[in-house]
């Protein structure tokens, strides 16, 4: 798909390539729409200064919202797996850590804070940061699911000791995933390099030029991507950078 945008200075041509399926995008936004209320209603029981909101009828209301949102949160990946199992497994595979993620970690400050593209080794369809976000969310989903169901239906069936562990692990998963969510939100909404992220999550496509620049291993394949990266580094070294 090719779209021509006419700006003031010149006409630019953007070539779009597909990145996400419709189900993935709808799932992503429903995930957001359930995660945010879950975090807010959960924190009512978490932060002591929110105690007035936890009391009596207000607290009962928040606990009810928490459960309703939890059903959506819990069911979404299952629906995704049922309808697009290949995509589901492919995505999880791409989230798995690899040795090259250390390169991302090394290059991340220069890349994200100072926009130095040459500092960042070629990344796959998801860069290591996105992989980390995905992995944290997947692990948190599993922990939320197991501990949440245990707290919901396990009172009086499971041992109190198990319930206590569940409360603790639920909190730990919440802390990790909310921190991850905040970073994810900042990068997607406010970081100038990440402009393509929101576009692809809304329309399912990403700019070919953007993909070549930021997800070279996905766009060119790992071998060609490394060749281009090395050539660029040599170029930069020769011109005295």
């Amino acid at each position: 798909m090719t779209v021509q945008l006419r700006g003031r200075a010149e006409a630019i041509t953007i070539q779009w390539i597909p990145k996400y399926t419709l189900l993935e995008r709808v799932g992503h936004w429903l995930h957001t729409a359930s995660f945010v209320p879950l975090a807010i209603t959960g924190m009512v029981l978490y932060f002591p200064f929110l105690q007035p909101l936890a009391q009596g009828a207000a607290g009962e209301f928040f606990r009810l919202v928490h459960r309703a949102a939890a059903v959506i949160f819990g069911v979404l990946p299952v629906i995704y797996f049922i309808f697009q199992p290949r995509r589901f497994i492919m995505n999880i595979r791409e989230f798995l850590p690899s040795k090259e993620d250390i390169g991302w970690l090394r290059g991340a400050p220069a890349y994200y804070l100072f926009g130095r593209h040459e500092a960042m080794p070629p990344q796959g369809r998801f860069n290591a940061g996105e992989k980390l976000n995905g992995l944290v969310m997947i692990i948190a989903w599993v922990i939320f699911g197991i501990t949440g169901l245990l707290m919901w239906f396990g009172k009086g069936i499971a041992s109190p000791e198990l319930f206590r562990w569940a409360v603790l692990l639920h909190d730990l998963a919440m802390i990790a995933s909310v921190c991850m969510f905040l970073v994810h939100l900042y990068l997607a909404v406010a970081h100038p390099l990440m402009w393509a992220a929101l576009v692809s999550m809304r329309f399912g496509v990403t700019s070919a030029e953007y993909a070549a620049e930021h997800h070279a291993k996905w766009y060119y394949g790992p071998k060609r991507a490394m060749e281009i990266y090395e050539a660029r580094k040599r170029e930069a070294a020769r011109s005295g950078h």
Binding site: L113, I175, C179
Partner: peptide
């Protein structure tokens, strides 16, 4: 510790936002 983690994350994001805005 959770509250500290939230605070550190928010401060880190604000810092990153300010640095990034000057450079990119």
């Amino acid at each position: 510790l959770g509250s500290v983690a939230f605070g550190a994350t928010i401060v880190g994001i604000l810092g990153a936002f300010l640095i990034t805005r000057r450079n990119i």
